[in-house]
């Protein structure tokens, strides 16, 4: 195959990408958002949808998502440190368990937790509480924080840790002053991914939510079930806005920082 032919193929590929990108953007972003916006606008214009009604589900969604993200990072951090710095069979098993949590459907995790708490007298009080819902999120999405946390741990040079050890005798202070401070960007990224997934989670949320507790996804689901497409459109738009903001913060802004 000659160089001219190679260039022709590469040029054709580039041309295809240029043509298909607007099509993909239309299909994945513009059309769905336009449809949702149309429904939402009709609802707001007709007085059937109030933005105030979406405030409580939005706040609940953000609250559980933030707590789940922080907790997931806190849970996977010791595992990431162990697998990276002192790999051992037990740390490997812990890491695999975290990954398995992501492989299992959220519905199954929710069912397992529901059955487990209902059949364990001391844990019965946990059933249908926000705490159990957050535990389900952590089990299901913990692995999303694991990879970035492992990278963050690996990125700390060994000499820095040894240096801090020779200078600071308190291991906790040493950890927060050096290790944690240097890992922070990776931990934020890992926590952000958990948050993003938690915002969109539905099956476990439907099953484990406390009575009267609604998130944006449960709101979208219930209004759709009842045929209130205007409410569905408005709630979906809020969810898209929150996810987009988070995606921008986690992905686009970080890559801009990296590029300088």
């Amino acid at each position: 195959m000659g160089p001219d032919k190679d260039q022709a193929i590469a040029g054709a590929g580039q041309c295809d990408v240029e043509r298909t990108t607007p099509f993909c953007l239309c299909l994945c972003l513009v059309i769905p958002i336009a449809s949702l916006a149309t429904w939402a606008q009709r609802g707001i214009a007709g007085g059937r949808v109030s933005i105030n009604d979406l405030m409580q589900p939005a706040i609940s969604t953000a609250t559980v998502a933030v707590i789940a993200a922080v907790l997931a990072v806190a849970v996977v951090m010791p595992i990431a440190i162990a697998t990276t710095r002192r790999p051992h069979r037990s740390s490997d098993i812990a890491a695999v368990s975290v990954i398995v949590g992501f492989a299992i459907p959220g519905l199954v995790i929710a069912l397992a937790l529901a059955v487990f708490t209902l059949n364990t007298p001391v844990l019965k009080g946990l059933y249908q509480t926000s705490a159990l819902l957050i535990i389900a999120y952590v089990i299901h999405f913990g692995s999303q924080a694991l990879a970035s946390t492992e990278s963050a741990v690996r990125a700390i040079p060994h000499a820095l840790r040894e240096s801090s050890r020779l200078l600071e005798s308190n291991p906790i202070r040493r950890f927060f002053q050096v290790d944690f401070a240097l890992m922070r960007p990776g931990l934020v990224a890992g926590g952000g991914l958990v948050m993003l997934s938690t915002l969109k989670e539905l099956p476990a949320t439907l099953l484990l939510s406390p009575i009267g507790f609604s998130t944006l996804t449960t709101e979208i689901w219930s209004s759709y079930e009842e045929g209130f497409y205007a409410e569905t459109g408005a709630a979906s738009l809020v969810l898209v806005a929150v996810s987009a903001t988070l995606t921008w913060f986690l992905v686009l802004r970080r890559s801009e920082v990296v590029r300088g």
């Binding site: 000499a159 240096s163 801090s164 020779l166």
Partner: peptide
């Protein structure tokens, strides 16, 4: 006290 090959200063 120890000085490492690349200084090992805390970058933050």
């Amino acid at each position: 006290g120890m000085v490492f090959q690349d200084g090992a200063l805390f970058p933050h």
